[in-house]
Design a protein around this nucleic acid. Structure first.
Lengths: 238, 238
DNA sequence: ACCTGAACACCGTTCAAGT
DNA sequence: ACCTGAACACCGTTCAAGT
C-alpha cells in the first residue's frame, strides 16, 4: 500500500510521485499477482488496485484483458528452455519441451486457461514454436506433421495444466484441514457404479486401472502416446 | 416473456400459475439457452430470467453453478452414440467416438469449457467412459492404457472444442460484415516473422505447413497420432 | 419445502473530465 | 498524452422473510 510521505523540502501533503504506468510495469504486476493469487484473481480491477490506480488507467496502455493475457502468456512462453536440436534424441527432446511447458503453467497457476486457444504471435510464443519445429524437423519428422504437432502438443499440455489448475484452485478455496480425500471419492464412485448393477460392467471390472496413477503418471503416458504416434504417422503427412 | 393473463373464472389480476421449478426444467432451460446464445451467456441470472424467476430460486434445486454445469455436461454426454465393440475396427471406432464428442461440443457452443477437467460421475459421462473402455479392451488395448486413454482423449477433444469455441465466440461478437480474414492474419504474421530476420528461420521456411489446413484436418491429424500412439505404446502399460 | 427481493462483493469496459 | 472517477451492464452467492 502506497502512502503519503512528507518530503524534507516539500509541503506536508506532497505526495510521493507515482511511477508512470507502462505496459511492462502492468505485465510485471500481473505476473506477480498471478504468482501470489493465481490467474483467476488477476482482473483489470485487482491489477489496478495493485498498481495503486483505477481500472480505467490500464486501458491507456492495453487494449483490453485479452491483450493483457497475450502479453502475460508471451512472458511465460519466453521462459521455456529450448535445447539445441539433437537428431538422435528428438523424441526425448520434444518430451522435455512439453514437460517444461507444463512446469511453467504449474508455476503460474491458472495461466493455462489464458493460454488455451491462443495463436502465438509474439516473441516468446514464436520462440517456442521455432524450437519445437526445429527439433522435430531435425529428427526427420515431416514438416506438415511437425507443424500440426505444435498445435496438438500445445492443446494437450494446455488441457492438462488447465485441468490441474481447476483442481488446485478448488483445493485452495477449501477450508484448511478438510482436504478432499481422493481415496474416499474413488470409493464413493466405485460403490455408485457397482450399484448400477450390470450397467457399467467394464468400469467395474477395471476400476483399479481407472483410478490408478497420479497426474504425472498420466501426463507421461500422454507424452508417450503423442510422441510414439507422431513417429508412427509422420510419413503419412508429407 | 411470460405475461399476466385474465383467466375466465378468475380475478382480473390472477396470474397464470408458474410451473414449479425442478432440476430437469432448469437443465432443459440451460440447454436451450446454451443452444441459442452459447454457454458463455448461460449464467445463474440469465437462466433465472429465462425461467421467469430470480437467481436465488435456482439454489433450492442446484447447489451452485458448478453442479448445474455437471448436469448439463451429463445431458450432452448422454447423447453420444456408442457403437458395439468390433475388435477388428477398434481404431476406427475410437476415432468415431471422438468425432462424436467434438460434434456434440460444436452443437452446444461453449460447453467444452465446462466439460474440461470434469471427472465423469453421472449417468451420461459414465456411459461414454464405459463405451470407450469396452471398445479399446475388445481391440486388445491393455486395461491400464485404455483407462488412461479415456482421460487423454477427453482432454484432447475438450481442448480442441474449447479453442474452436473461443474462435467462433469472437466471430459472433464481431460486427456483421467485418469477418476476420484468415488469409490476412496469416499474411500479417508471416511478414512479422520474416521481419525478425533470421531469428525464426524454421518458421519462415515452413510457413506454408504451419498455416495449412482447417480445423477438421488438424483434428483428424490429432486422432491419427493419438490412436496410432495408443496402439504403439499399449503393451508398455500392463 | 419452496420461492423471493434485496443485498454483498465482485467483473470488463466506456466516457467525459481533468492535468 | 496520460490518467481519473463515476457509471453501465453485468456476475455468483447468501440470507432473512414470505407462502
Amino acid at each position: 500500500m502506497r502512502v503519503r510521505v512528507a518530503l524534507p523540502s516539500g509541503r506536508a501533503d506532497r505526495v510521493e510521485p507515482k511511477a508512470r504506468l507502462t505496459v511492462d510495469r502492468i505485465v510485471d504486476a500481473a505476473m506477480e499477482l498471478m504468482k501470489r493469487e493465481g490467474y483467476d484473481n488477476v482482473s483489470m480491477r485487482s491489477l489496478a488496485r495493485e498498481l495503486d490506480t483505477g481500472p480505467a488507467s490500464l486501458y491507456a496502455h492495453v487494449a483490453n484483458k485479452d491483450e493483457l493475457d497475450q502479453y502475460v502468456i508471451d512472458r511465460i512462453s519466453g521462459m521455456l528452455e529450448i535445447p539445441d536440436p539433437d537428431p538422435d534424441r528428438w523424441q526425448e527432446q520434444l518430451k522435455e519441451l512439453m514437460r517444461g511447458m507444463l512446469q511453467l503453467f504449474r508455476e503460474h497457476p491458472g495461466s493455462a486457461r489464458a493460454a488455451m486457444g491462443m495463436i502465438p504471435t509474439m516473441e516468446g510464443g514464436l520462440r517456442a514454436a521455432e524450437g519445437m519445429m526445429a527439433i522435430a524437423i531435425a529428427g526427420g519428422v515431416t514438416p506438415q506433421a511437425a507443424a500440426w504437432f505444435c498445435d496438438l502438443s500445445a492443446a494437450y499440455v494446455g488441457a492438462i495444466a488447465y485441468e490441474e489448475s481447476i483442481w488446485t484452485a478448488r483445493e485452495n478455496s477449501t477450508a484448511a484441514g478438510e482436504q478432499p480425500d481422493h481415496a474416499a471419492i474413488d470409493e464413493q464412485l466405485r460403490t455408485f457404479v457397482e450399484g448400477m448393477g450390470d450397467r457399467f460392467p467394464v468400469l467395474v471390472r477395471f476400476a483399479t486401472e481407472l483410478t490408478a496413477g497420479g497426474g504425472d503418471d498420466r501426463f507421461e503416458f500422454g507424452l508417450d502416446v503423442l510422441i510414439s504416434g507422431l513417429a508412427a504417422v509422420s510419413k503419412r503427412y508429407s
